[in-house]
Every structure is written in structure tokens, then in C-alpha cells.
């Protein structure tokens, strides 16, 4: 009986080893439309280019859950590559979950924009996204040009904002702080908080569900803030009901980083995938597909796609140091809860 069992065990081991040698790279990243478009623009071309490597997309609704999964698998990782938000990547790096992505992993690293590198984060930026105003084109006839449109009295009760601690809320605080003429957001955002406080009574919900895009597309709300890439996609799928505007005052970037999991089972194959994901070829494809701005400076993008990203307005962008923000984020959240949300009750 023991003999038979050991045969079974070795058979299983062989199966496991052989499947590993067929080179599967497990990637964790956002579910939903991100998965759909990333698979089409990056993963499928990659697998065509490297027929020996299969990329498995292990989707998660948000960065925090990816971090949670990586934590749970720390002793025996099942995931090789993780695409997640830069501040969550910092936490993962601090906990020793990731290996450094440098030029030894990918030659493309040297071509990345400077803000694709963050101090103390093992991974590097793979997509840039930015906050935009989104609006229902039936209710808002002319495209807003300024963030101040949100404070317009005629949209009272029709504005939806995803509050802090979500990074939409955090980013909005930093933008509002600049609008209100406040100082360095790393030390004091009280001017921005006060400005959002004025907006608070007219806010319909601070926690739009299922996301900020659907209620605006279906007319439940008129105006809100959202991420450019997703807004561009929903603008198309909603048949133009959802409008996207990048205000003239500029915006702030959100950075997704690509990270190599420490002791990743796929080894070299994982590095190959990261290299590809950072290549101008993949970057251009994903930008045309989903309108995330590229992080590789060598990327060449068609003009019409480029117009729908913030890549043309780099100079207007607030340079947000997300690692500094991570340190003050709890304070910002607390101010939202004490000085903004109560004003809207």
C-alpha cells in the first residue's frame, strides 16, 4: 500500500514539475475591463511571441486583495508577477514580498520615465492613469473645462465622489488643495479639505456602487471624478452617455507598478513577461487599447489614442509622491471623515 501511495505521490510530483517546465507565468492584476483589455493588448501577443510560455491571469478586484493573497502565499508563492498600485507595492516591498525589477530583469527599465521609479518600491511603473471629470452628457451639455464645475450649484445632489481612503478621494484632495491655493500637500491639505467641504452638501454619494462610472452613464448622477482609462472605455461602451474631461488645471497620476514576486516559481519566464510588458511595443498596444498613458519614454503612440491620455499634458500634472502620501494618507482620511462627510448629512 505504501509503495502504491509513493508511486502516486511521485506521479503527482512529476505532473507538477512538468507543468512548471511548460512555463506558466501567473500574473495577478485587476479584474473586469482591465483584465479584458490587458489580455488582448499584452498577454496574447506575448504568448504568440513566446509559444513556450503560458500566462495565466489571476484576477483580483483591487490591489489590497492582491497584497493579501501575496502575504498568505509568502512561504510558497503561486503568483509570479503582480500589477498593483504603487503605494500597495511599497507595503509589499517593505514586507519582502518582491524582488527588485532593474536592468538585470529588463533592459527597458532604463527607458522608463523618471516617475515610473519610486524609492523603496521593488517594481517599476507599468501604466500611468490620471483623475478626470466624468459627466453625463444628457445632463451636462458642454464639457466641463475646470474642476470648479463640480462646485456648480446647478448640479447639487448630482455629484458623486469616491471618498478617501480610496485613492480617488486622496488624489482629489491633492488637486483641490492646489485649486484652493493651499501649500505642499505633504504637510498640509487643510485648504483642499475646506474646499471639498463646500462641495459636500451637494454630493449624492461618497461611495458610488458598483463604481463611479455606471451611475453617471445611466443618469443617476450628473458629475463626478474617475480614472481616465476606465472612463474612456465606458465612454465608448455607454454610447457617449458618459463624457470625459481633463480639466485645464491639470490632474494627478495614479501609478500601477509591475512587480516580480520573490521566489516566483516561473523564474526566468516571469522576467521575460515583465520585460515584454515594459517594452514600447506592449506599452503602445495597451495605450491604444485602454488609454493608460505609457511609462516607457520610447513608446510611439498614434495621435488619436494619445489625445485620450494625459501623455500630451505631462506639464500640467501634479507630481504626486505616492510614498510620501502613504505616510499622510491616514491623516487625510481622518479629515475627510471629520470635516467633509459630516457636512453632507
Amino acid at each position: 500500500m505504501f509503495a502504491r501511495l509513493s508511486i502516486a505521490v511521485s506521479a503527482l510530483t512529476i505532473a507538477a514539475v512538468s507543468s512548471a517546465s511548460a512555463e506558466t507565468v501567473t500574473l495577478t492584476a485587476y479584474s473586469g475591463i482591465f483584465q479584458e483589455h490587458y489580455t488582448k493588448a499584452v498577454i496574447e501577443p506575448f504568448m504568440k511571441k513566446y509559444p513556450d510560455i503560458t500566462v495565466q491571469f489571476y484576477s483580483m478586484p483591487n490591489s489590497a486583495q492582491m497584497l493579501g493573497t501575496l502575504r498568505a502565499q509568502k512561504s510558497s508563492p503561486q503568483i509570479d508577477v503582480a500589477i498593483l498600485d504603487v503605494s500597495v507595492a511599497k507595503a509589499g516591498t517593505d514586507e519582502g514580498l518582491f524582488d527588485k525589477v532593474d536592468e538585470s530583469v529588463s533592459a527597458n527599465v532604463k527607458d522608463l520615465y523618471p516617475n515610473a521609479h519610486a524609492e523603496g518600491v521593488a517594481g517599476v511603473g507599468v501604466t500611468f492613469d490620471n483623475l478626470v471629470i466624468i459627466y453625463n452628457t444628457d445632463q451636462v451639455k458642454t464639457a466641463p473645462t475646470s474642476w470648479n464645475a463640480l462646485w456648480d450649484k446647478q448640479y447639487e445632489g448630482k455629484v458623486i465622489i469616491q471618498a478617501a481612503p480610496d485613492i480617488q478621494g486622496t488624489t482629489f484632495t491633492i488637486i483641490s488643495n492646489k485649486l484652493a491655493g493651499g501649500g505642499d500637500y505633504k504637510t498640509d491639505v487643510s485648504a483642499g479639505i475646506a474646499k471639498i467641504g463646500e462641495l459636500a452638501p451637494g454630493v449624492q454619494t461618497w461611495d458610488p456602487k458598483p463604481d463611479v462610472y455606471a451611475p453617471i452613464a445611466n443618469g443617476q448622477a450628473a458629475l463626478g471624478i474617475g480614472w481616465n482609462a476606465r472612463a474612456q472605455i465606458y465612454s465608448g461602451t455607454s454610447g457617449g452617455k458618459l463624457g470625459v474631461a481633463l480639466p485645464e488645471e491639470g490632474s494627478g497620476f495614479q501609478i500601477n507598478t509591475i512587480n516580480l514576486v520573490k521566489n516566483a516559481p516561473a523564474g526566468e519566464a516571469a522576467k521575460k513577461f515583465i520585460d515584454y510588458a515594459l517594452s514600447p511595443e506592449a506599452q503602445a498596444a495597451f495605450t491604444s487599447e485602454m488609454f493608460y498613458a505609457p511609462t516607457n519614454s520610447k513608446t510611439v503612440i498614434a495621435q488619436d489614442a494619445l489625445k485620450r491620455t494625459a501623455a500630451d499634458d505631462m506639464d500640467k500634472m501634479i507630481d504626486i509622491d505616492w510614498l510620501a502620501v502613504a505616510k499622510v494618507r491616514d491623516g487625510i482620511t481622518e479629515q475627510w471623515r471629520r470635516r467633509i462627510i459630516p457636512l453632507s448629512r
Binding site: A64, P165, Q204, D207, S344, R345
Partner: peptide, 25 residues
């Protein structure tokens, strides 16, 4: 509470979610 609270209603369950999933605390 998450769907109907509009981010205005702070309850233990929603706060646990926010702390665990959004703030990562």
C-alpha cells in the same frame, strides 16, 4: 450599508472592510 449608505454611514462592518481592503490597516 455599503450600497445604501453613500459613504456617509460609518458602521463597524463597513469600516472593517475599508480598513482591511482600502487602507490595508
Amino acid at each position: 450599508p455599503k450600497l445604501m449608505g453613500g459613504g456617509r454611514v460609518f458602521l463597524l462592518a463597513t469600516e472593517i472592510y475599508d480598513q482591511a481592503i482600502v487602507t490595508l490597516n
